[in-house]
Every structure is written in structure tokens, then in C-alpha cells.
Amino acid sequence: MNYELCEGVTIEHIDGHNVLVAEKGDVAVLNRTASCILDNVLDDGGIENAVKSVLDKYSTDGDTARADAEEFIAGLAEKKLIKFGSE
């Protein structure tokens, strides 16, 4: 079970950035860290791998990385841009 994009949501690439776009109009511009987290959770890596990937690339501590990742994913889910498994 992993996260996936909600129906009608696409990832667009503009100027080296990923932008989540929902058909109904919600838009989320992702910075590099956010893109890294989303790539991991969508690739079935889950939050754990996302945190590990962030720690590999950026100088931050594990607790902060985990909190940021969870908050970010929860925010996308709240906007109905991503969903968990077969929700």
C-alpha cells in the first residue's frame, strides 16, 4: 500500500520544478526537497525512504526531516492531490 496521485492530478515540469495540478484547479509548486519526498512516496518508498533520501541530500536532522515530510504529505492529501492506497 502506498501513496498515489488522486484522479485528475498530474505532475507538470516547469523550469526544473515539479508542479502538481488538479483538474479542478488546485496547484502545488514543489521545491527540490518536496519533489524528493513526493518522488519517494509515489515510488512505493514510503515516508521512511523519503526521510532517508532527504537526509542523504540535505543537512538536517532525522526528526525535523520526518516531521517536514509527514506535514507535507498530509497537506497534499488534505488538498486531495494524493491519496493513500485505495482510498
Binding site: 498530474t10 507538470e12 516547469i14 523550469d15 520544478h17 508542479v19 495540478v21 488538479a22 483538474e23 479542478k24 484547479g25 488546485d26 496547484v27 509548486v29 521545491n31
Partner: peptide, 27 residues
């Protein structure tokens, strides 16, 4: 890019609601 939605929304007009226009514009 973090500024993109706001600056685009400020200049777009059309028949659809602004958020829909923004999504189509970004695609």
C-alpha cells in the same frame, strides 16, 4: 516558481473559474 500561481492568477481572465484557468495555464 513559488510565485507563479499568484502572479499568473493576477493577470488571467476568462470564462472558467480562476483556479481552473491556472491549472490549464500551467499544463
Amino acid at each position: 516558481m513559488s510565485k507563479l500561481p499568484d502572479v499568473v492568477l493576477q493577470s488571467l481572465m476568462g470564462q472558467a473559474p480562476p483556479s481552473l484557468l491556472l491549472g490549464r495555464f500551467i499544463k
